[in-house]
Design a protein around this nucleic acid. Structure first.
Length: 914
RNA sequence: GCGAAAGUGGCGGAACUGGCAGACGCGCUGGAUUUAGGUUCCAGUGGGGCAACCCAUGCGGGUUCGAGUCCCGCCUUUCGCACCA
């Protein structure tokens, strides 16, 4: 074998072997347990980035580990090929999006292969293949026929200069990213999928997803946002239609002092018609983008419409305000405002000097009212602290009680709303009730009066799938003047996206291509037009996992899907915690309800990996004409970092000129900060195994990973040492098998360390996904092996056992090196995943002595060594006789001794006795 | 604004169920080997005192024999917010 570790040669050899033997192509085999390991498919942006490397290495480690457990492992790969960047690239370089995308795919496939991932490439596809998206179009047509698809107006970002719809990403500080023009909201008709029909199931099944991170499930629960409450109708003076609001706090109903509506609400439009000020305000609300973050962070503003709503219980007249923070897309587009008990209403009311009416008392106020007697709680009006006519039951502390009431009222008037549940006050017949009592009583009254009902409300909105873009899957609809929107008949699918187009970026080539657009209505045969919008790319990424199981199937998936699904391990970025993962779960249920699948959920275990970050370096732009704070970002590879004699970083210089550069924050790798590290450069320099090893070692998978080239060197060093250790070992004469009875103490120790490592690495990979500590354990074992210089027969036997275990345990991380070293250890060239995972022997794990820490009053004072089966009394006695312990307790009484077997002895000493 | 996470040596991180804080790696210091080396090997490395010991896991409280870990309150950073993928 090679004496020196030469990654290039061994990686090429291993990859050739895998390709020649089609090592990772799999088929369904009901006699074997399957394992479907899936990483989120990449967007083909041009080249692999470190986020991909990390994601796919995690998947590959798990796949290879599971295969070594004897499972039938499927690890597929494909391309999320539609999307906005292809259009941007097309504009910038004049290449059609399809060509740009396919060239990128070819390049990135090679890069993935160079990383040595155990992928079944026979199942590969790109989502821009008509043979893929035809099934998506068929599904859409089916859903249309089932009534799960509908069309309605919704708001988009409109660039008035470029005359185009902008994605939220393309709106920067309220302006179009290319034109720089202020963005406006615009309503256009769009297609929606009724995901809300599945809201309850999507919520309920989260409880069953034991293998998903709690954080993701919590975020999904909050996103779905089930809330129970009342829908309450307020009559509007002079209007035919009542104004509907939803509230989860019906107990505060008697504290409503006005009603807020969204600027897009029909009543707002009505009010704007005869009032220029309102019209101007509504028009102003159209400025800016549509993202929720933008809407929620803008300054709260409003205007009185002059319209009047009638309180359904008290009959009071309430002003109706247009408020820019009420969202038309959420609920009814109107909310009842209770400034005393809702913080946002409180702020709005304070700003516009609208009244606050206290109707909920905190515990202290409720106590004070009870002390003042039954009637006080009912009649108490905290705003005026009107206690006139109420005689206190015990007169002496009346003033004190009144002070407490006043303090509560003042707090709400001046500081903030009281938003907790409490006792109802100042609420007519409902005073004195608690939240639940008020909910029941009000629901009954409003239902009886026909102006309200209990209802369940969802935060989740239906999925808008229309995009006004070219590079996407065409929505299979034909618009006919007579028949309306008609789905494209099954036999005419797919509606193929023309790929050979000139793309300017201003208008979709679909709109400007009459030949493609014009067709005939499938129902009446008259001339009609195709829908020119395309699908949201989440449509493609919501079901790709199922297609991998059924390559070439005539239908969307076939019977093979039930063998492989659900996915056993899904891996991807935490940024997908809500949207993608919710659509993914939803689509699975659509496939199930179409009878194509028979499982409830698409994936049983989910791992969300953190992002890859790196240091940033910069210089201030000299001669900058505008902002003096402008920075030129410098790639980490062009910089030398200086340290002092203690290893502290004291500065950095540019390699090119030796002059200083500034050190910025450690941030996510990005083009804008120029801190990206190219995986290809790393592979060329160190080899794929080293890159894989570092990306698994530097941080646990869920955390962010800081790319640091010195750390990569460390991994290369480890592999070189390991290589050398095996090389040296195999150059020695043959040895007999390990004879446990014949081992000396040092041999026993190394053997124990080997078997402890087997236990730890298996647990770390299989159960904990703590790849970093698995690798650390293997490094420790290598340190033990290199210190073990026993060349006797049993010494060589024990070393062989250690090295052989290491080759197998390292295989998921460094499959190329393990492939070569397995042969070096005397095995023929085989697929190492067909070797069984090493098993720890119980007897090899036994210890002669165990170490216990001894504390006095919780502070470490020494350690003691004991037989593993020593009694509590022995441990206590030995601890007390330890000199450092005796010193620490001198002059004090031992009051208590706590012994935790195998771990610790804590002596509680002090004055007094036990 | 709302929702979800994370804060431990000079750095990345370890400590899994409340039980010896800092495994492993990087960096740094000293030494050895080598014609040379951005090679390899050996030793040391949280801070203070340089001894006994004291201090230390974002900040402030609390529970406990014992807290990085549990509870309460703050601060900072990151992710998501429905047209980026």
């Amino acid at each position: 074998m090679q004496e020196h570790y030469d990654p290039r040669a061994i990686e090429t050899a291993a990859q050739t072997f895998w390709a020649d033997t089609r090592a990772y192509e799999v088929t369904e085999d009901p006699s074997r347990e399957k394992f479907y390991c899936l990483s989120m498919l990449p967007y083909p942006s041009g080249a692999l980035h470190m986020g991909h490397v990390r994601n796919y290495t995690i998947g590959d480690v798990i796949s290879r580990y599971q295969r070594m457990q004897g499972r039938n492992v499927l690890q597929p790969m494909g391309w999320d090929a539609f999307g906005l960047p292809a259009e941007n690239a097309a504009i910038a370089r004049g290449i059609p999006p399809a060509k740009w995308t396919r060239d990128n795919i070819d390049h990135m496939r090679e890069q993935l292969q160079a990383m040595g991932f155990a992928i079944d490439w026979s199942r590969e596809f790109a989502t821009c293949d008509p043979s893929y998206y035809v099934h998506e179009q068929r599904m859409f047509v089916r859903l249309f026929e089932q009534g799960l698809v509908y069309r309605k107006n919704s708001v988009v970002n409109w660039d008035p200069v470029d005359q185009t719809v902008l994605a939220n990403e393309q709106v920067v500080d309220g302006r179009g990213w290319r034109s720089g023009a202020p963005v406006k909201k615009r309503e256009i008709p769009q297609w929606f999928l009724k995901i809300t029909d599945y809201a309850q199931e999507l919520l309920d099944e989260l409880d069953r997803l034991q293998g998903w991170p709690e954080a993701v499930k919590t975020m999904q629960r909050n996103w779905i946002g089930r809330s129970e409450g009342l829908e309450i109708r307020f009559d509007v003076e002079g209007a035919h239609e009542p104004l509907s609001v939803f509230t989860t706090r019906p107990d505060t109903l008697m504290g409503v002092t006005f009603v807020s509506i969204a600027a897009e609400h029909p009543l707002a439009h009505a009010a704007a018609r005869n009032n220029p000020a309102i019209a101007a305000f509504v028009e102003q609300c159209r400025h800016g983008g549509v993202s929720e973050a933008e809407l929620e962070t803008q300054e709260k503003r409003g205007i009185d419409t002059g319209l009047v709503a009638i309180h359904p219980v008290s009959g009071e007249k309430l002003p109706i305000w247009v408020a820019n923070f009420v969202l038309m897309g959420y609920g009814t587009g109107a909310v009842m405002a209770v400034p005393a008990h809702d913080q946002r209403d409180w702020e709005f009311a304070t700003k516009y000097r609208l009244p606050k009416k206290i109707v909920i008392a905190d515990a202290d106020t409720a106590d004070a009212l009870r002390a003042l007697g039954e009637r006080a709680a009912v009649a108490f009006d905290p705003m005026s602290v009107a206690l006139g006519g109420i005689a206190p039951e015990s007169g002496s502390d009346r003033v004190g009680l009144e002070d407490r009431l006043t303090a509560f009222a003042r707090r709400i008037e001046q500081e903030s709303a009281f938003t907790e549940h409490g006792m109802l006050v100042n609420s007519q017949d409902f005073s004195g009730l608690d939240f639940d009592g008020a909910l029941t009583a009000l629901a009954e009254k409003l239902e009886a009066d026909g102006c309200g009902a209990r209802t369940v409300h969802w935060r989740l909105r239906d999925w808008g799938v229309s995009r006004q873009r070219y590079w996407g899957c065409p929505i299979p609809i034909i618009h006919c003047d007579r028949c309306g929107a008609v789905p494209v008949p099954e036999e005419q699918l797919p509606v193929v996206l023309p790929e050979d187009v000139a793309f300017s970026g201003v208008q979709s080539p679909l709109k400007s291509d009459p030949q493609w657009r014009n067709t005939v209505c499938p129902e009446c045969g008259e001339p009609a037009e195709r829908e020119t919008d395309t699908f949201d790319t989440f449509m493609e990424s919501s079901w790709y996992y199922a297609r991998y199981t059924s390559p070439g199937a005539e239908t969307q998936v076939d019977a093979r899907a039930d063998y492989w699904l659900p996915v056993d391990q899904y891996i991807g970025g935490i940024e997908h915690a809500i949207l993608h993962l919710l659509y993914f779960r939803f689509y699975h249920k659509l496939l199930r309800d179409a009878g194509l699948l028979h499982s409830r959920e698409p994936a049983t275990n989910l791992l969300c990996q953190g992002m890859v970050v790196a240091e940033t370096f910069y210089r201030d732009s000299e001669l900058g004409t505008r902002d003096s704070g402008k920075r030129d970002w410098i790639n980490p590879s062009e910089v030398n970092v200086q340290r002092n004699e203690r290893g502290h970083v004291i500065g950095a210089t540019l390699k090119a000129d030796g002059l200083p550069v500034w050190i910025g924050a450690t941030e996510k790798m990005s083009k804008s900060k120029n801190n990206g590290v190219d995986p290809q450069t790393m592979i060329d320099k160190y080899g794929a195994d080293t890159v894989r090893l570092f990306s698994m070692f530097a941080a646990p998978p869920e955390q962010s990973l800081e790319w640091n080239e010195a750390g990569v060197e460390g991994m290369a060093r480890f592999l070189r040492r390991f290589w050398r250790e095996v090389t040296t070992h195999v150059s020695q004469p043959d040895h007999p098998p390990v004879d446990p009875a014949a081992l000396n103490a040092a041999q026993k120790t190394l053997r124990r360390q080997t078997h402890e490592t087997i236990v730890k690495v298996g647990d770390d990979i299989g159960r904990r996904h703590a790849f970093n500590t698995a690798i650390a354990a293997l490094m420790e074992l290598l340190n033990h092996v290199s210190k073990f210089d026993d060349v006797s027969e049993q010494g060589r036997a024990v070393r062989h056992e250690a090295l052989q275990a290491m080759v197998l345990l390292l295989n998921p991380f460094t499959p190329h090196a393990s492939h070569a070293l397995w042969q070096a250890l005397g095995h023929p060239e085989t697929l190492i995943e067909d070797q069984p995972w090493p098993k720890a022997e119980r007897e090899a794990l036994l210890r002669d002595r165990v170490t216990l820490a001894v504390q006095v009053n919780g502070k470490l004072r020494g350690t003691i060594e004991l037989a593993p089966d020593a009694s509590r009394e022995e441990a206590e006695m030995q601890a007390l006789s330890e000199p450092s312990v005796a010193r620490a307790i001198a002059g004090q009484n031992v009051r208590k001794v706590i012994v935790v077997p195998g771990k610790i002895v804590n002596i509680v000493a002090g004055e007094g006795t036990a």
